[in-house]
């Protein structure tokens, strides 16, 4: 079956077997291997990507279901060679060890910060509760998400100030 799906802003057309799971499509057909697979019961969250802006587990969505939809993977976080604040915060705060859960964790955290730019620790822990990490004990992940939230608020503030300085409306 032919599908058209936008991944990280780029439109792909592909022929997929209906039973192909989105995670495998991303990894094996689009070569976006940042999305990992860690379980067979939709538990671990290593394969978390954004589907129309919301985190979902791509091992439990069919690739054909992405036809006409937008997907964002870890490879789409960086823009213009600049790490996303979440990426740099994960680095600074030692929020990863083996790195296998990291892409899914980043996407789940990204989803959270889209809707809740200043989450509490408890809200972060709840939002990431579908993503298992076996290495970090989550402490530094929570810290990094807080760090990223501050960075992003700072960026927004900068953008507002810049816009104000240049006289354009920020509405």
């Amino acid at each position: 079956m032919n599908i058209r799906v936008k991944v990280n802003g780029r439109l792909y057309e592909a022929d997929v077997e209906p039973r192909t799971l989105l995670a495998y499509f991303l990894r094996e057909q689009l070569n976006l291997t940042g999305t990992h697979i860690g379980c067979d019961t939709t538990t671990c969250g290593a394969c978390t990507v954004l589907f129309d802006g919301k985190p979902i587990k791509s091992c439990t969505v069919l690739a054909v279901q992405a036809d006409g939809h937008e997907v964002m993977t870890v490879e789409g976080l960086e823009s213009n060679g600049q790490l996303h604040p979440l990426q740099s915060a994960f680095w600074e705060d030692h929020a990863l060890q083996c790195g296998y859960c990291t892409p899914g964790m980043l996407m789940a955290a990204y989803g959270l910060l889209q809707t809740n730019p200043a989450p509490t620790d408890v809200e972060i822990r709840e939002a990431l509760s579908g993503n298992i990490c076996r290495c970090t004990g989550y402490m530094n992940i929570v810290k990094a998400v807080q760090n990223a939230a501050r960075k992003m608020a700072g960026e927004n503030q900068e953008a507002i100030e810049e816009a104000a300085a240049s006289g354009t409306s920020t509405d």
Partner: peptide, 12 residues
């Protein structure tokens, strides 16, 4: 709703 599975599953 908030007790069901986990957030990514709840999105779907």
């Amino acid at each position: 709703a908030r007790w069901i599975a986990d957030p990514p599953i709840r999105n779907r």
